[in-house]
Simulated assay, not measured.
Amino acid sequence: MEKENLKKRVKGRAIRIVMGSLLPTIFAVVYLMVWSLELPPIKELAVVLLFGYMFTGVQAIVASLVMEFVVNPRWGYPVAIVVGGVLGLVGIAIFALEAELLIMGTVIGTLMGWLLHFHYRRSTVLERQGV
């Protein structure tokens, strides 16, 4: 029984770390496409995603690890959302201080904070219920 719970916990953490590492760049590309009202061809979209991961991948991984191992186990819902927004803001501010991009980083960071905390809460509640 203990091995099953450990496997579920590790699997949940892995899912959240992967989500937190990959989704911010995808959200940023979608956000920028909506902002500019342009849909690039698929080849260009792949290149944009590749460059996005090159520039924001490390920040997304660090933010995901901070959320998983520091924020979610210690604090509740509002703190996770605020910390997510701040991590998104700081992650984009490393590269640019343009207002539009800072807003984008904050919005995506807040969304990621909510998603990661929601998944964390859901998996810990299910774990306690023995599901």
Rank of each mutant, 00 (worst) to 15 (best):
P73M: 12
M33H: 06
E38R: 11
N72M: 12
I92C: 03
A99I: 15
V82T: 03
A80H: 04
L32C: 11
S36R: 13
N72S: 13
V66H: 01
I61E: 03
G52M: 09
G88M: 13
I81N: 04
K43F: 05
G76M: 11
V47N: 09
V70E: 09
L102M: 14
L87R: 02
V58Y: 09
I103Q: 10
G57Y: 00
V58D: 06
G76Q: 07
V66E: 00
L39Y: 04
V58R: 12
G52A: 09
G76L: 07
A99V: 15
V47W: 08
V48L: 14
L39H: 00
I61L: 09
V86E: 06
W75D: 13
G84V: 06
L89P: 10
V47S: 08
E98F: 15
P73D: 05
T56K: 00
A93W: 08
V90E: 05
F95M: 06
L32I: 15
A80N: 04
A63P: 03
V79W: 00
L87W: 01
I103N: 07
V62S: 08
A63G: 11
A93I: 12
M67G: 03
I61A: 10
G85F: 04
V34E: 08
W75P: 11
E98T: 15
S64A: 10
V48W: 05
E44G: 10
V58L: 11
L37N: 09
Y77I: 06
V62C: 08
M54P: 04
Y53A: 03
V82W: 00
F69H: 11
V71G: 07
M54N: 05
V71Y: 06
P41L: 14
